[in-house]
Simulated scan of single mutants.
Amino acid sequence: MAKTQLNVRVDEGTARAARERATARGMSVNRYIEELVRQDTGEAGRTFVEAAADFMKQYENVFAEEFGPAREGTHPGTREGRR
């Protein structure tokens, strides 16, 4: 993917926080900002939801065995779920 340079101005506290967060995550400030924008635009959220859906589909039989068939408006482990 081609890269485009984007110049932004932020106060020193914000710049310092961005550098510290990027360093703590072992990435460049550029990569950190890219990740934040992707999360804000929903790409990471969609990826998470898709992965969670795949996980649930893969293990739906295990959950059904453990918690029984799903019933609308009830939750396992609650009084309503034990009726």
Rank of each mutant, 00 (worst) to 15 (best):
T23R: 15
S28Q: 12
E66D: 09
T41H: 14
Q58Y: 02
F48Y: 07
E34V: 05
D54I: 04
F67C: 02
A53S: 15
V49C: 11
R25W: 10
E43S: 12
T41Y: 10
T47I: 06
T47C: 08
G42H: 08
E35F: 00
L36A: 03
A52D: 13
F67R: 07
Q58N: 04
A51G: 07
Q39R: 07
T23G: 15
D11L: 12
K57E: 13
N61S: 10
F67Y: 14
E34N: 11
G68E: 08
E35R: 01
V37T: 05
E34P: 00
V29S: 04
F55D: 15
A18S: 11
D11S: 05
V62P: 01
Y59M: 03
G26L: 05
D11M: 07
A44R: 07
A70Q: 02
I33D: 13
E66R: 10
E20M: 08
F67H: 02
A64L: 11
T47S: 15
N61R: 06
A52Q: 11
L36R: 07
M27Q: 12
P69E: 12
A44C: 10
V49N: 13
G42E: 13
Y59D: 09
F63P: 00
R25D: 15
K57Y: 11
L36E: 04
E50H: 03
R38P: 01
A24D: 09
T41W: 10
A51H: 05
E60D: 14
R71A: 07
E34F: 02
V62R: 10
K57W: 10
D11G: 14
A44D: 14
I33Y: 05
S28Y: 08
V62I: 06
D54C: 02
R21Q: 09
E20D: 10
N30M: 04
K57S: 09
F55S: 15
A70T: 00
V37D: 06
R19S: 15
E20C: 03
G13T: 08
E65S: 14
E12H: 06
G68D: 14
F63E: 08
A17I: 02
T47G: 15
A22H: 04
G45R: 07
M27L: 10
G68L: 05
R46E: 15
K57M: 05
V49G: 08
R31W: 08
D54Y: 02
M56I: 02
V37K: 04
R25L: 15
T47M: 12
F63Q: 06
S28N: 14
A17K: 04
E34D: 13
E35K: 00
G68H: 07
E60I: 01
T14I: 12
S28I: 00
A53K: 13
E50S: 14
G42R: 01
V49E: 15
E34S: 11
P69F: 09
D54M: 13
F55H: 14
E35H: 03
F63I: 09
A24G: 03
R16Y: 09
A44H: 09
T23P: 07
R71Q: 06
Q39V: 00
D11A: 14
G68T: 02
F48N: 10
R71D: 05
M56Y: 12
E66T: 03
R38H: 09
V49L: 13
A64S: 13
E34W: 04
Q39E: 11
Q58R: 09
M56V: 03
N61G: 06
V37R: 02
A64W: 05
G13M: 08
V62Y: 04
K57D: 15
P69K: 12
F63K: 07
F67N: 05
Q58L: 14
T41M: 09
E50M: 08
A51L: 11
Y59S: 04
